[in-house]
Computed example of a mutant assay.
Amino acid sequence: MRKLWTILLLAALTACSSGLADGGKVTPTATAPAGAGPGEPRDVVTGLAVPWAITFLPGGDALVTERDTARLLRVTRDGKVTSLGTIPGVSAAGEGGLMGVAAKDQQVFLYYTAEQDNRIVRYQLTGDRLGDERVLVRGIPKGAIHNGGRLAFGPDGFLYASTGETGEDQLAQQRDSLGGKILRMTVDGAPAPGNPFGTLVYSYGHRNVQGLAWDRSGRLYASEFGQNTYDEVNLIKAGGNYGWPEVEGRSDDSRYVNPIVTWSTDEASPSGMAYANGSLWVGALRGTRLWQVPLAADGSAGTPVAHFTGRYGRLRAVTAAPDGTLWVGTSNKDGRGSPRPGDDRILSVPLS
Rank of each mutant, 00 (worst) to 15 (best):
M1N: 13
R2Y: 10
L4A: 15
W5T: 11
L9M: 07
A11E: 04
A12Y: 07
G19Q: 15
A21M: 05
K25E: 15
A30H: 07
T31E: 14
T31S: 14
P33N: 12
P33C: 13
A36W: 03
E40N: 10
P41A: 08
D43I: 12
V44E: 07
V45W: 03
T46P: 01
L48W: 05
V50T: 15
P51Y: 11
L57F: 02
D68G: 10
A70M: 11
L73Q: 13
R77D: 11
S83F: 00
T86F: 01
P88A: 12
G89S: 12
A102D: 07
D105E: 15
D105K: 12
V108D: 12
V108N: 04
Q116C: 00
Q116W: 01
D117I: 02
G127D: 08
G127Q: 03
I145G: 00
G149A: 07
F153E: 07
P155H: 05
F158T: 15
F158Y: 15
A161Q: 05
E165V: 01
E165T: 01
T166I: 12
R175V: 14
L178P: 00
R184T: 14
P193L: 10
F197A: 09
G198I: 11
S203T: 02
S203R: 02
Y204R: 00
H206G: 01
L212Y: 09
R216P: 00
F225K: 03
F225E: 01
T229I: 09
Y230T: 07
D231N: 05
L235V: 08
L235N: 02
I236M: 03
E246G: 04
E246D: 10
E248T: 03
R250S: 08
R250D: 05
R250I: 03
D253G: 04
I260Q: 02
V261Q: 13
E267W: 08
S279E: 09
V282R: 10
G283E: 11
Q292D: 14
Q292S: 11
D298M: 08
G299L: 07
S300V: 01
S300T: 15
A301K: 05
A301N: 07
T303I: 04
V305H: 07
R311Y: 02
A317I: 10
T319V: 04
T319G: 01
G324R: 02
V328M: 14
G329Q: 11
G329H: 09
T330N: 09
N332R: 11
D334W: 09
P339H: 09
P341T: 09
L347D: 13
L347G: 12
P350D: 04
P350Q: 06
L351V: 06
